[in-house]
Design a protein around this nucleic acid. Structure first.
Lengths: 356, 356
DNA sequence: TTGTAAGCGTTATCAT
DNA sequence: ATGATAACGCTTACAA
């Protein structure tokens, strides 16, 4: 009752297994009457062909691995959503592997994904955002890519030839910085981000370059790195506020850090943006949760996921795809930089849907 | 080079495939010299056994399906994290299926998970939170449970005998309500939640019961349902504030709704908690992101994930497990209900880790 | 239109 | 300690 196979169906229908297989896959004409007989039995036993056996034969599993560093950062679930939306109707299914940026976990999961014979892999974070990725880890991924199609999302590996899909982070940081400058700010700080991660260094480079283009420059004591957490934003903001001279605006490495910055500013009785303006990065749901809402750079996370998985699909089907796909970031202006902005006029349309 | 099998290894090592299998699995003694020879070839070709073939034979895939309604609600990633942490070292891998509460997607994914021969399924949201689940959908899950171990997380199906792991939501809502009453509130509203979802009705029942126990009662015009989004919180709060009489506190169905409520209160120049106190539910990262931080009920999401997956593992190993595992919710008091609370004294220890 | 048999890449059961 | 060989459950030539 529990483990029905094509043989069981075939026997009871008094046909051969090939016939059962044919009605299952519509791969060749079957007499209507026998088809009915088989179909009835499939229904009766709720028969479902074993995907392992099929995949073993066809060398295709309809399965994709997604490797991400942190599922608790809302950015990644959004990317996942985009990926899933793009491939849902094709019947693909996803192994979600979260690595916490731990290289060991990454390697472990990559091996597991290979063993499970995934058709392709989307790789985010971890070693591909490292300023100096250990050569053996880069090599590991290269080797794997010779067997399984891999798309690097928002990352890169030096001297490699992976297919990549990414947001132009440099441009994003430029947009953020220029926005603050356009608002009249001349003294701007930078908060958050691990110094060995390219997501940090890219932004800093663009930040300083944009300042320079506008005849301004950064101040070392206002460059307060750390990590990508709320707690980091809080702590660094405390430090910033303790300085004899303060900037009038800060650009944060991501939305999480921005939340911490806003929180601490509030605790010190500062008004945002009047006393200090704040810009974030990612445009996650957190940006819509703060008071005031956060001006930030959208990474178009869902589109990023969709696009990445489409590229991967092309690769799986051995079609030609361009190596690099770049998405343009978008500046989302909200009330953490522009006072008196009409809430309804903000880019919060997502929040304006009817609710039951 | 790309598709090496045990046969290839065996041939080149001049041994039989069984010997290769033996060194692979350590399932029987092998002469040291031949083991070395085989190992060298495995290394040389970076051979990795095909999991499909192995699973086909062993009838175990080391794979678990997790069905959730919405990965963009931080609660679910937290549950996922707990599940993954508990099973990572055992080499399990997870199919993440997000259904958007769409019953069709649910059925589709359930079929796929069966086809992929997952060892077990964690089911959250959707049909198991329905006040009136369509019988055929309940039946579908029951049927599947006869073939694959399933654990219902934070949900139930009437007249069924699934294994379940859940938070005592009734108790949670009671804690929240009593907290407000203890603070002196006598006029309390309820905001958010779809009326056909048990996550809503359970809370409302506990809310009204707790009011009654304290000699209070709810007011129909202050019971403003809807859905579980920020936008809903915003809109319902607008409506509430437009009433001639307002409550002094509101209990929201979840953190998302709370965020909207706080946002709108702020826009109306109200101070929280002085003018209106707010309590949420879930204790997601959003609760730590609002200003002021949100008093909320912790569902102990990570533990929930861990526990669920442990129960599932017992089921997979055909061990006896108690049918129901209940977790006690925890009230997290923050500044959206208690003014002047020292931030450092709050339950935000998670934010206080050093940051590089 | 249908059946037979080989093969997918393993592991397990026998022998030897 | 090692080797043949039969499964596992399916699809697909090739025959009939």
């Amino acid at each position: 009752m529990l483990d029905v196979t094509v043989y069981d169906i075939a026997r009871e229908a008094e046909v051969s297994v090939s016939t059962v297989s044919r009605v299952l896959n519509g791969t060749a004409p079957v007499k209507a009457s026998t088809r009915q007989k088989v179909l009835a039995l499939i229904e009766k036993y709720q028969f479902q062909p074993n995907g392992l056996a099929r995949s073993l034969l066809k060398k295709v599993t309809g399965t994709i691995g997604i490797v991400i560093p942190d599922i608790n950062n809302p950015f990644f679930p959004e990317v996942f959503t985009g990926a899933e939306n793009a491939l849902r109707e094709k019947g693909y299914t996803f192994f979600l592997c979260t690595t916490h940026g731990n290289f060991e976990y990454e390697s472990q999961y990559l091996a597991l994904l290979r063993e499970k014979q995934v058709d392709g892999i989307l790789f985010l974070g971890g070693r591909i955002n490292q300023r100096h990725c250990p050569p053996d880890l880069a090599q590991e991924l290269e080797d794997l890519n010779r067997r399984i199609p891999i798309v690097l999302v928002n990352g890169d590996l030096p001297g490699s030839s992976f297919h990549r899909v990414f947001i132009d982070e440099h441009r994003g940081a430029e947009l953020a910085t220029q926005h603050l400058i356009d608002l009249g700010h001349r003294h701007i700080g930078f908060i958050g981000g691990e110094p060995e991660i390219t997501a940090t260094t890219e932004k800093i480079a663009a930040f300083e370059q944009t300042l320079a283009v506008n005849g301004l420059s950064s101040r070392p004591e206002w460059m307060l790195l750390g990590d990508f957490s709320i707690g980091c934003g809080m702590r660094r903001m405390e430090e910033l506020l303790a300085l004899p001279e303060r900037p009038t605006a800060v650009f944060c490495v991501n939305d999480f850090v921005s939340v911490g910055v806003i929180k601490t500013a509030f605790d010190h009785g500062l008004r945002i943006p009047a006393d200090i303006a704040v810009v974030g990065f990612d445009d996650t749901v957190l940006a819509a949760s703060t008071t005031p809402e956060l001006t930030t750079i959208s990474q178009r996370s869902k589109e990023l996921g969709e696009t990445s998985v489409r590229v991967l699909l092309q690769l799986i089907q051995k079609r030609r795809v361009r190596k690099h796909t770049v998405l343009e970031p978008v500046l989302k202006i909200r009330r953490s930089t522009v006072d008196g902005l009409n809430a309804a006029a903000g880019q919060l349309s997502q929040l304006s849907e009817p609710c039951g």
